[in-house]
Write a protein that binds this DNA or RNA. Sequence first.
DNA 1: CGATCCATTGGGGAAATCCCGTAGGGATCA
DNA 2: TGATCCCTACGGGATTTCCCCAATGGATCG
Lengths: 232, 232
Amino acid sequence: MRLIDLSLSASDEDRGAFLSELCESLEIDHACYALQDPFSGNVHGYATYPEEWKQLYGQRAYQHVDPTFTKAVRSVAPVDWSRFTSDSGFDTVFSAARDFGISSQGLSVPVRGPFGDIGLLTVTRDCGEREWQGLRRKIIGGLQSAAVNFHDSVMRSNTIAGLMRVPPLSSRECEILQWIAAGKSQQDVGDILSISPRTVEVHLRSAREKLGALTTPQAVGRAVRLALISPG
Amino acid sequence: MRLIDLSLSASDEDRGAFLSELCESLEIDHACYALQDPFSGNVHGYATYPEEWKQLYGQRAYQHVDPTFTKAVRSVAPVDWSRFTSDSGFDTVFSAARDFGISSQGLSVPVRGPFGDIGLLTVTRDCGEREWQGLRRKIIGGLQSAAVNFHDSVMRSNTIAGLMRVPPLSSRECEILQWIAAGKSQQDVGDILSISPRTVEVHLRSAREKLGALTTPQAVGRAVRLALISPG
DNA sequence: CGATCCATTGGGGAAATCCCGTAGGGATCA
DNA sequence: TGATCCCTACGGGATTTCCCCAATGGATCG
Protein backbone atom coordinates (compact mmCIF):
# COMPACT_ATOMS: atom_id res chain seq x y z
CA MET A 1 0.00 0.00 0.00
CA ARG A 2 1.78 3.04 -1.29
CA LEU A 3 0.90 6.66 -0.84
CA ILE A 4 2.07 9.44 -3.08
CA ASP A 5 2.81 12.82 -1.66
CA LEU A 6 0.76 15.33 -3.60
CA SER A 7 2.18 18.34 -1.83
CA LEU A 8 5.18 18.22 -4.13
CA SER A 9 3.32 18.23 -7.45
CA ALA A 10 -0.01 19.81 -8.01
CA SER A 11 -1.04 19.99 -11.63
CA ASP A 12 -4.09 18.47 -13.26
CA GLU A 13 -2.19 15.77 -15.11
CA ASP A 14 -0.57 14.66 -11.89
CA ARG A 15 -3.97 14.24 -10.33
CA GLY A 16 -5.20 11.92 -13.05
CA ALA A 17 -1.99 9.95 -12.68
CA PHE A 18 -2.42 9.88 -8.92
CA LEU A 19 -5.80 8.17 -9.25
CA SER A 20 -4.31 5.57 -11.56
CA GLU A 21 -1.50 4.88 -9.13
CA LEU A 22 -4.00 4.69 -6.32
CA CYS A 23 -5.84 1.95 -8.20
CA GLU A 24 -2.66 -0.06 -8.57
CA SER A 25 -1.35 0.35 -5.07
CA LEU A 26 -4.70 -0.34 -3.39
CA GLU A 27 -5.75 -3.15 -5.75
CA ILE A 28 -8.92 -1.47 -6.93
CA ASP A 29 -10.49 -1.21 -10.38
CA HIS A 30 -11.41 2.46 -10.58
CA ALA A 31 -10.98 5.62 -8.56
CA CYS A 32 -12.88 8.87 -8.93
CA TYR A 33 -12.62 12.23 -7.22
CA ALA A 34 -15.44 14.75 -7.38
CA LEU A 35 -15.53 18.25 -5.92
CA GLN A 36 -18.76 20.09 -5.31
CA ASP A 37 -17.98 23.75 -4.95
CA PRO A 38 -20.34 25.68 -2.71
CA PHE A 39 -20.44 28.80 -4.80
CA SER A 40 -21.73 27.56 -8.14
CA GLY A 41 -22.83 24.14 -6.99
CA ASN A 42 -20.98 22.69 -9.95
CA VAL A 43 -19.19 19.38 -9.72
CA HIS A 44 -15.62 19.02 -10.91
CA GLY A 45 -13.89 15.71 -11.04
CA TYR A 46 -11.21 13.31 -12.10
CA ALA A 47 -11.82 9.63 -12.80
CA THR A 48 -10.19 6.54 -14.21
CA TYR A 49 -13.49 5.50 -15.78
CA PRO A 50 -13.74 4.94 -19.54
CA GLU A 51 -14.28 8.18 -21.44
CA GLU A 52 -17.62 6.94 -22.79
CA TRP A 53 -18.98 6.33 -19.31
CA LYS A 54 -17.93 9.76 -18.13
CA GLN A 55 -19.73 11.34 -21.05
CA LEU A 56 -22.86 9.28 -20.55
CA TYR A 57 -22.85 10.10 -16.85
CA GLY A 58 -22.71 13.79 -17.64
CA GLN A 59 -25.30 13.60 -20.45
CA ARG A 60 -27.83 11.85 -18.27
CA ALA A 61 -26.97 14.06 -15.30
CA TYR A 62 -26.60 11.00 -13.09
CA GLN A 63 -25.05 13.11 -10.34
CA HIS A 64 -28.58 14.09 -9.35
CA VAL A 65 -29.79 10.54 -8.74
CA ASP A 66 -26.58 8.61 -8.10
CA PRO A 67 -26.69 7.81 -4.36
CA THR A 68 -22.94 7.23 -4.29
CA PHE A 69 -22.83 10.95 -4.83
CA THR A 70 -26.03 12.42 -3.37
CA LYS A 71 -26.02 10.32 -0.22
CA ALA A 72 -22.30 10.30 0.35
CA VAL A 73 -22.02 14.09 0.40
CA ARG A 74 -24.31 13.99 3.44
CA SER A 75 -22.21 11.48 5.29
CA VAL A 76 -19.35 11.87 7.71
CA ALA A 77 -17.93 8.38 7.51
CA PRO A 78 -17.06 6.48 4.34
CA VAL A 79 -20.11 4.83 2.81
CA ASP A 80 -20.11 1.31 1.40
CA TRP A 81 -22.26 1.03 -1.69
CA SER A 82 -23.95 -2.05 -0.30
CA ARG A 83 -26.11 0.44 1.57
CA PHE A 84 -27.67 1.56 -1.69
CA THR A 85 -28.86 -1.78 -3.03
CA SER A 86 -32.48 -0.85 -2.38
CA ASP A 87 -32.08 2.63 -3.88
CA SER A 88 -33.83 3.18 -7.21
CA GLY A 89 -31.25 5.70 -8.35
CA PHE A 90 -28.49 3.21 -7.63
CA ASP A 91 -30.08 0.64 -9.93
CA THR A 92 -30.53 3.24 -12.64
CA VAL A 93 -26.91 4.31 -12.60
CA PHE A 94 -25.21 1.00 -12.04
CA SER A 95 -27.22 -1.06 -14.46
CA ALA A 96 -25.84 1.37 -17.02
CA ALA A 97 -22.38 1.32 -15.47
CA ARG A 98 -22.18 -2.44 -15.77
CA ASP A 99 -22.03 -2.08 -19.55
CA PHE A 100 -18.73 -0.28 -19.08
CA GLY A 101 -17.29 -2.93 -16.80
CA ILE A 102 -17.81 -0.90 -13.65
CA SER A 103 -18.68 -2.87 -10.55
CA SER A 104 -21.50 -1.91 -8.23
CA GLN A 105 -19.24 -2.79 -5.32
CA GLY A 106 -17.50 0.28 -4.00
CA LEU A 107 -16.84 2.83 -1.35
CA SER A 108 -17.29 6.61 -1.16
CA VAL A 109 -15.12 8.73 1.12
CA PRO A 110 -16.33 12.28 1.80
CA VAL A 111 -14.01 15.12 2.80
CA ARG A 112 -15.08 18.58 3.86
CA GLY A 113 -13.09 21.77 3.94
CA PRO A 114 -13.63 24.91 5.99
CA PHE A 115 -15.42 26.75 3.15
CA GLY A 116 -18.27 24.34 2.61
CA ASP A 117 -16.26 22.56 -0.06
CA ILE A 118 -16.99 18.87 -0.33
CA GLY A 119 -14.70 16.35 -1.96
CA LEU A 120 -15.64 12.77 -2.66
CA LEU A 121 -13.18 9.99 -3.36
CA THR A 122 -14.87 6.86 -4.63
CA VAL A 123 -13.34 3.51 -5.51
CA THR A 124 -14.79 0.36 -7.06
CA ARG A 125 -13.63 -3.23 -7.15
CA ASP A 126 -15.21 -6.20 -8.87
CA CYS A 127 -14.66 -9.24 -6.68
CA GLY A 128 -16.33 -11.59 -4.24
CA GLU A 129 -18.11 -10.07 -1.29
CA ARG A 130 -15.84 -11.64 1.30
CA GLU A 131 -12.77 -10.51 -0.58
CA TRP A 132 -14.23 -7.01 -0.81
CA GLN A 133 -14.82 -6.87 2.94
CA GLY A 134 -11.21 -7.77 3.61
CA LEU A 135 -9.87 -5.36 1.02
CA ARG A 136 -12.00 -2.55 2.35
CA ARG A 137 -10.74 -3.03 5.86
CA LYS A 138 -7.18 -3.08 4.64
CA ILE A 139 -7.28 0.06 2.53
CA ILE A 140 -9.78 2.29 4.32
CA GLY A 141 -7.14 4.12 6.36
CA GLY A 142 -5.04 4.79 3.30
CA LEU A 143 -8.12 5.89 1.39
CA GLN A 144 -8.99 8.40 4.09
CA SER A 145 -5.53 9.87 3.92
CA ALA A 146 -5.53 9.89 0.15
CA ALA A 147 -8.93 11.59 0.04
CA VAL A 148 -7.89 14.30 2.47
CA ASN A 149 -4.59 14.98 0.73
CA PHE A 150 -6.19 14.97 -2.68
CA HIS A 151 -8.89 17.37 -1.62
CA ASP A 152 -6.40 19.61 0.11
CA SER A 153 -4.28 19.67 -3.01
CA VAL A 154 -7.23 20.51 -5.23
CA MET A 155 -8.41 23.30 -2.95
CA ARG A 156 -4.96 24.86 -2.90
CA SER A 157 -4.61 24.80 -6.66
CA ASN A 158 -5.12 27.88 -8.75
CA THR A 159 -7.62 26.33 -11.12
CA ILE A 160 -10.11 25.75 -8.34
CA ALA A 161 -9.19 28.84 -6.39
CA GLY A 162 -10.46 30.88 -9.33
CA LEU A 163 -13.80 29.10 -9.30
CA MET A 164 -14.25 29.33 -5.58
CA ARG A 165 -12.82 32.67 -4.85
CA VAL A 166 -14.08 34.13 -1.64
CA PRO A 167 -15.10 37.76 -2.06
CA PRO A 168 -13.04 39.96 0.26
CA LEU A 169 -15.57 41.59 2.53
CA SER A 170 -14.32 44.44 4.66
CA SER A 171 -14.29 43.80 8.39
CA ARG A 172 -17.19 46.17 8.88
CA GLU A 173 -19.26 44.48 6.22
CA CYS A 174 -18.55 41.12 7.77
CA GLU A 175 -19.42 42.41 11.20
CA ILE A 176 -22.73 43.83 10.06
CA LEU A 177 -23.63 40.78 8.01
CA GLN A 178 -22.91 38.71 11.09
CA TRP A 179 -25.38 40.67 13.14
CA ILE A 180 -27.98 40.51 10.40
CA ALA A 181 -27.49 36.75 10.30
CA ALA A 182 -28.05 36.76 14.05
CA GLY A 183 -31.56 38.07 13.47
CA LYS A 184 -30.97 41.77 14.13
CA SER A 185 -32.62 44.49 12.08
CA GLN A 186 -30.61 47.25 10.49
CA GLN A 187 -31.85 49.54 13.23
CA ASP A 188 -30.66 47.08 15.90
CA VAL A 189 -27.24 46.78 14.31
CA GLY A 190 -26.94 50.54 14.22
CA ASP A 191 -27.65 50.69 17.93
CA ILE A 192 -25.27 47.83 18.70
CA LEU A 193 -22.40 49.35 16.75
CA SER A 194 -23.36 52.92 17.69
CA ILE A 195 -23.62 53.99 14.06
CA SER A 196 -26.46 55.28 11.93
CA PRO A 197 -28.82 52.68 10.49
CA ARG A 198 -28.12 54.36 7.16
CA THR A 199 -24.51 53.37 7.45
CA VAL A 200 -25.54 49.85 8.25
CA GLU A 201 -27.60 49.79 5.10
CA VAL A 202 -24.68 51.01 2.99
CA HIS A 203 -22.37 48.32 4.32
CA LEU A 204 -25.04 45.73 3.81
CA ARG A 205 -25.49 46.85 0.23
CA SER A 206 -21.81 46.63 -0.59
CA ALA A 207 -21.68 43.24 1.06
CA ARG A 208 -24.52 42.10 -1.18
CA GLU A 209 -22.71 43.41 -4.23
CA LYS A 210 -19.45 41.72 -3.33
CA LEU A 211 -21.22 38.45 -2.73
CA GLY A 212 -23.14 38.79 -5.97
CA ALA A 213 -26.39 38.56 -4.06
CA LEU A 214 -29.65 40.16 -5.07
CA THR A 215 -31.12 40.18 -1.58
CA THR A 216 -29.89 40.19 1.99
CA PRO A 217 -31.13 36.66 2.70
CA GLN A 218 -29.14 35.42 -0.28
CA ALA A 219 -26.07 37.30 0.91
CA VAL A 220 -26.38 35.74 4.35
CA GLY A 221 -26.80 32.29 2.85
CA ARG A 222 -23.69 32.69 0.73
CA ALA A 223 -21.64 34.18 3.54
CA VAL A 224 -22.57 31.28 5.80
CA ARG A 225 -21.70 28.78 3.12
CA LEU A 226 -18.36 30.48 2.52
CA ALA A 227 -17.68 30.43 6.26
CA LEU A 228 -17.37 34.22 6.29
CA ILE A 229 -19.88 34.33 9.11
CA SER A 230 -21.67 31.85 11.33
CA PRO A 231 -25.41 32.10 11.92
CA GLY A 232 -26.52 33.15 15.42
CA MET B 1 -16.71 29.60 23.51
CA ARG B 2 -16.89 27.46 26.63
CA LEU B 3 -15.17 24.19 27.35
CA ILE B 4 -17.30 21.25 28.36
CA ASP B 5 -15.94 17.92 29.53
CA LEU B 6 -18.19 15.31 27.99
CA SER B 7 -16.67 12.47 29.98
CA LEU B 8 -18.59 13.73 33.00
CA SER B 9 -21.85 12.50 31.50
CA ALA B 10 -22.20 8.88 32.46
CA SER B 11 -23.65 7.69 29.16
CA ASP B 12 -20.47 8.47 27.31
CA GLU B 13 -18.05 6.36 29.30
CA ASP B 14 -17.39 4.08 26.38
CA ARG B 15 -16.03 6.98 24.38
CA GLY B 16 -13.45 7.76 27.02
CA ALA B 17 -12.58 4.08 27.00
CA PHE B 18 -12.24 4.21 23.25
CA LEU B 19 -9.61 6.93 23.50
CA SER B 20 -7.67 4.88 26.03
CA GLU B 21 -7.75 1.89 23.74
CA LEU B 22 -6.66 4.08 20.86
CA CYS B 23 -3.61 5.11 22.86
CA GLU B 24 -2.64 1.51 23.48
CA SER B 25 -3.21 0.19 20.00
CA LEU B 26 -1.48 3.09 18.27
CA GLU B 27 1.37 3.42 20.77
CA ILE B 28 0.63 6.99 21.73
CA ASP B 29 0.67 8.77 25.09
CA HIS B 30 -2.57 10.72 24.99
CA ALA B 31 -5.61 11.15 22.81
CA CYS B 32 -8.16 13.94 22.89
CA TYR B 33 -11.34 14.55 20.96
CA ALA B 34 -12.95 17.99 20.81
CA LEU B 35 -16.18 19.00 19.09
CA GLN B 36 -16.99 22.58 18.24
CA ASP B 37 -20.69 22.91 17.62
CA PRO B 38 -21.64 25.60 15.16
CA PHE B 39 -24.53 27.08 17.15
CA SER B 40 -23.19 27.96 20.54
CA GLY B 41 -19.57 27.81 19.47
CA ASN B 42 -18.94 25.82 22.62
CA VAL B 43 -16.34 23.09 22.68
CA HIS B 44 -17.18 19.65 23.99
CA GLY B 45 -14.52 17.06 24.50
CA TYR B 46 -13.05 13.86 25.82
CA ALA B 47 -9.40 13.39 26.74
CA THR B 48 -7.02 10.97 28.40
CA TYR B 49 -5.14 13.89 29.92
CA PRO B 50 -4.74 14.15 33.69
CA GLU B 51 -7.75 15.70 35.35
CA GLU B 52 -5.67 18.62 36.66
CA TRP B 53 -4.52 19.54 33.16
CA LYS B 54 -8.05 19.47 31.81
CA GLN B 55 -9.16 21.81 34.57
CA LEU B 56 -6.26 24.17 34.09
CA TYR B 57 -6.87 24.21 30.32
CA GLY B 58 -10.48 25.20 30.90
CA GLN B 59 -9.67 27.73 33.60
CA ARG B 60 -7.14 29.54 31.46
CA ALA B 61 -9.34 29.21 28.37
CA TYR B 62 -6.43 27.86 26.38
CA GLN B 63 -8.78 26.86 23.56
CA HIS B 64 -8.59 30.46 22.37
CA VAL B 65 -4.83 30.50 21.91
CA ASP B 66 -3.90 26.85 21.52
CA PRO B 67 -2.90 26.53 17.86
CA THR B 68 -3.44 22.77 17.93
CA PHE B 69 -7.06 23.78 18.23
CA THR B 70 -7.45 27.18 16.56
CA LYS B 71 -5.29 26.40 13.56
CA ALA B 72 -6.33 22.80 13.12
CA VAL B 73 -10.03 23.62 12.84
CA ARG B 74 -9.16 25.59 9.71
CA SER B 75 -7.25 22.78 8.12
CA VAL B 76 -8.32 20.01 5.81
CA ALA B 77 -5.41 17.66 6.29
CA PRO B 78 -3.99 16.46 9.62
CA VAL B 79 -1.59 18.98 11.13
CA ASP B 80 1.68 18.03 12.78
CA TRP B 81 2.43 20.18 15.79
CA SER B 82 5.95 20.82 14.52
CA ARG B 83 4.28 23.51 12.44
CA PHE B 84 3.51 25.48 15.56
CA THR B 85 6.98 25.72 17.06
CA SER B 86 7.17 29.42 16.24
CA ASP B 87 3.67 30.12 17.52
CA SER B 88 3.48 32.14 20.72
CA GLY B 89 0.25 30.47 21.80
CA PHE B 90 1.86 27.08 21.36
CA ASP B 91 4.65 27.97 23.75
CA THR B 92 2.15 29.31 26.27
CA VAL B 93 0.08 26.16 26.29
CA PHE B 94 2.79 23.54 26.03
CA SER B 95 5.20 25.00 28.49
CA ALA B 96 2.36 24.53 30.94
CA ALA B 97 1.46 21.12 29.53
CA ARG B 98 4.97 19.87 30.10
CA ASP B 99 4.39 20.03 33.84
CA PHE B 100 1.73 17.38 33.37
CA GLY B 101 3.95 15.12 31.32
CA ILE B 102 2.34 16.03 28.03
CA SER B 103 4.64 16.12 25.05
CA SER B 104 4.68 18.96 22.56
CA GLN B 105 5.00 16.39 19.80
CA GLY B 106 1.64 15.54 18.36
CA LEU B 107 -0.84 15.52 15.55
CA SER B 108 -4.32 17.04 15.09
CA VAL B 109 -6.84 15.42 12.76
CA PRO B 110 -9.84 17.57 11.80
CA VAL B 111 -13.18 16.10 10.72
CA ARG B 112 -16.14 18.04 9.38
CA GLY B 113 -19.75 16.98 9.19
CA PRO B 114 -22.51 18.25 6.93
CA PHE B 115 -23.91 20.61 9.58
CA GLY B 116 -20.85 22.75 10.10
CA ASP B 117 -19.80 20.53 12.96
CA ILE B 118 -16.07 20.22 13.44
CA GLY B 119 -14.40 17.41 15.33
CA LEU B 120 -10.76 17.31 16.23
CA LEU B 121 -8.84 14.21 17.24
CA THR B 122 -5.43 14.99 18.63
CA VAL B 123 -2.74 12.60 19.81
CA THR B 124 0.61 13.14 21.51
CA ARG B 125 3.69 11.00 21.89
CA ASP B 126 6.91 11.75 23.73
CA CYS B 127 9.76 10.19 21.77
CA GLY B 128 12.61 10.97 19.41
CA GLU B 129 11.83 12.97 16.31
CA ARG B 130 12.79 10.18 13.93
CA GLU B 131 10.72 7.70 15.82
CA TRP B 132 7.81 10.12 15.76
CA GLN B 133 8.04 10.51 12.00
CA GLY B 134 7.88 6.76 11.55
CA LEU B 135 5.06 6.33 14.02
CA ARG B 136 3.06 9.11 12.42
CA ARG B 137 3.32 7.57 9.00
CA LYS B 138 2.30 4.23 10.36
CA ILE B 139 -0.80 5.36 12.25
CA ILE B 140 -2.10 8.28 10.24
CA GLY B 141 -4.50 6.16 8.19
CA GLY B 142 -5.91 4.54 11.30
CA LEU B 143 -6.15 7.90 12.99
CA GLN B 144 -8.16 9.29 10.10
CA SER B 145 -10.58 6.41 10.33
CA ALA B 146 -10.77 6.66 14.09
CA ALA B 147 -11.41 10.40 13.95
CA VAL B 148 -14.19 10.05 11.40
CA ASN B 149 -15.88 7.20 13.22
CA PHE B 150 -15.58 8.91 16.56
CA HIS B 151 -17.03 12.13 15.24
CA ASP B 152 -19.81 10.26 13.48
CA SER B 153 -20.61 8.45 16.70
CA VAL B 154 -20.67 11.65 18.72
CA MET B 155 -22.90 13.42 16.22
CA ARG B 156 -25.37 10.54 16.25
CA SER B 157 -25.51 10.44 20.03
CA ASN B 158 -28.42 11.85 21.96
CA THR B 159 -26.38 14.19 24.10
CA ILE B 160 -25.23 16.11 21.07
CA ALA B 161 -28.37 15.62 19.03
CA GLY B 162 -30.18 17.68 21.66
CA LEU B 163 -27.76 20.53 21.17
CA MET B 164 -27.80 20.43 17.41
CA ARG B 165 -31.25 19.20 16.53
CA VAL B 166 -32.49 19.91 13.05
CA PRO B 167 -36.03 21.33 12.95
CA PRO B 168 -38.28 19.40 10.55
CA LEU B 169 -39.34 21.87 7.89
CA SER B 170 -42.18 20.85 5.60
CA SER B 171 -41.26 20.30 1.98
CA ARG B 172 -43.07 23.44 0.95
CA GLU B 173 -41.29 25.52 3.56
CA CYS B 174 -37.97 24.12 2.43
CA GLU B 175 -38.80 24.80 -1.19
CA ILE B 176 -39.75 28.39 -0.53
CA LEU B 177 -36.78 29.04 1.72
CA GLN B 178 -34.60 27.65 -1.04
CA TRP B 179 -35.93 30.18 -3.52
CA ILE B 180 -35.57 33.00 -1.03
CA ALA B 181 -31.98 31.95 -0.48
CA ALA B 182 -31.56 32.08 -4.24
CA GLY B 183 -32.30 35.79 -4.17
CA LYS B 184 -35.97 35.70 -5.15
CA SER B 185 -38.56 37.97 -3.59
CA GLN B 186 -41.74 36.61 -2.10
CA GLN B 187 -43.55 37.86 -5.18
CA ASP B 188 -41.11 36.01 -7.43
CA VAL B 189 -41.53 32.80 -5.51
CA GLY B 190 -45.29 33.10 -5.75
CA ASP B 191 -45.00 33.40 -9.52
CA ILE B 192 -42.54 30.52 -9.74
CA LEU B 193 -44.67 28.17 -7.67
CA SER B 194 -47.94 29.57 -9.03
CA ILE B 195 -49.25 30.39 -5.58
CA SER B 196 -50.23 33.62 -3.91
CA PRO B 197 -47.40 35.73 -2.48
CA ARG B 198 -49.45 35.73 0.71
CA THR B 199 -49.10 31.99 0.91
CA VAL B 200 -45.38 32.31 0.36
CA GLU B 201 -45.23 34.67 3.27
CA VAL B 202 -47.12 32.24 5.50
CA HIS B 203 -44.73 29.39 4.72
CA LEU B 204 -41.81 31.67 5.26
CA ARG B 205 -43.20 32.70 8.61
CA SER B 206 -43.64 29.15 9.81
CA ALA B 207 -40.17 28.29 8.55
CA ARG B 208 -38.78 31.16 10.61
CA GLU B 209 -40.63 29.92 13.68
CA LYS B 210 -39.44 26.35 13.27
CA LEU B 211 -35.88 27.52 12.85
CA GLY B 212 -36.19 29.81 15.83
CA ALA B 213 -35.24 32.74 13.63
CA LEU B 214 -36.35 36.31 14.17
CA THR B 215 -35.83 37.37 10.57
CA THR B 216 -35.71 35.77 7.15
CA PRO B 217 -31.97 36.35 6.71
CA GLN B 218 -31.35 34.53 9.99
CA ALA B 219 -33.61 31.68 8.90
CA VAL B 220 -31.71 31.36 5.63
CA GLY B 221 -28.39 31.40 7.45
CA ARG B 222 -29.48 28.66 9.79
CA ALA B 223 -31.03 26.58 7.04
CA VAL B 224 -27.84 26.79 5.04
CA ARG B 225 -25.79 25.82 8.04
CA LEU B 226 -28.08 22.90 8.73
CA ALA B 227 -27.76 21.83 5.11
CA LEU B 228 -31.53 22.07 4.70
CA ILE B 229 -30.97 24.25 1.67
CA SER B 230 -28.04 25.38 -0.44
CA PRO B 231 -27.61 29.02 -1.40
CA GLY B 232 -28.11 29.86 -5.09
C1' DC C 1 0.77 63.86 -3.78
C1' DG C 2 -3.26 62.41 -6.12
C1' DA C 3 -5.98 57.97 -6.44
C1' DT C 4 -8.54 54.71 -4.31
C1' DC C 5 -10.94 52.37 -0.95
C1' DC C 6 -13.24 52.37 3.49
C1' DA C 7 -16.32 54.16 7.18
C1' DT C 8 -19.45 57.38 8.16
C1' DT C 9 -24.01 60.14 7.70
C1' DG C 10 -27.92 61.93 5.45
C1' DG C 11 -32.88 62.56 2.35
C1' DG C 12 -36.81 60.97 -0.27
C1' DG C 13 -39.64 57.69 -2.05
C1' DA C 14 -40.75 53.23 -3.83
C1' DA C 15 -41.01 48.58 -2.71
C1' DA C 16 -41.03 44.69 0.09
C1' DT C 17 -41.55 42.47 4.26
C1' DC C 18 -43.72 41.50 8.57
C1' DC C 19 -47.51 40.95 11.98
C1' DC C 20 -52.20 40.78 13.21
C1' DG C 21 -55.93 38.28 12.03
C1' DT C 22 -59.50 34.54 9.35
C1' DA C 23 -60.69 30.27 6.77
C1' DG C 24 -61.51 26.01 3.91
C1' DG C 25 -59.91 21.42 2.22
C1' DG C 26 -56.96 17.48 2.64
C1' DA C 27 -53.90 14.15 4.82
C1' DT C 28 -52.55 11.61 8.78
C1' DC C 29 -53.09 9.59 13.12
C1' DA C 30 -54.72 8.07 17.71
C1' DT D 1 -64.21 10.22 14.25
C1' DG D 2 -62.25 14.05 16.16
C1' DA D 3 -57.47 16.22 16.49
C1' DT D 4 -53.69 17.96 14.34
C1' DC D 5 -50.84 19.55 10.89
C1' DC D 6 -50.00 21.14 6.14
C1' DC D 7 -51.17 23.90 2.08
C1' DT D 8 -53.78 27.22 0.29
C1' DA D 9 -55.57 32.19 0.20
C1' DC D 10 -56.88 36.99 1.64
C1' DG D 11 -56.67 42.11 4.08
C1' DG D 12 -55.06 46.02 6.57
C1' DG D 13 -51.60 48.43 8.49
C1' DA D 14 -47.13 49.08 10.62
C1' DT D 15 -42.41 48.39 9.89
C1' DT D 16 -38.40 47.62 7.26
C1' DT D 17 -35.71 47.33 3.52
C1' DC D 18 -34.13 48.90 -0.80
C1' DC D 19 -32.56 52.19 -4.35
C1' DC D 20 -31.56 56.63 -6.21
C1' DC D 21 -28.85 60.61 -4.80
C1' DA D 22 -24.61 63.45 -2.33
C1' DA D 23 -20.80 64.31 1.01
C1' DT D 24 -16.68 64.26 4.51
C1' DG D 25 -12.56 62.47 6.80
C1' DG D 26 -9.10 58.95 7.10
C1' DA D 27 -6.05 55.36 5.58
C1' DT D 28 -3.32 53.24 2.22
C1' DC D 29 -0.82 52.85 -1.87
C1' DG D 30 1.72 53.69 -6.12
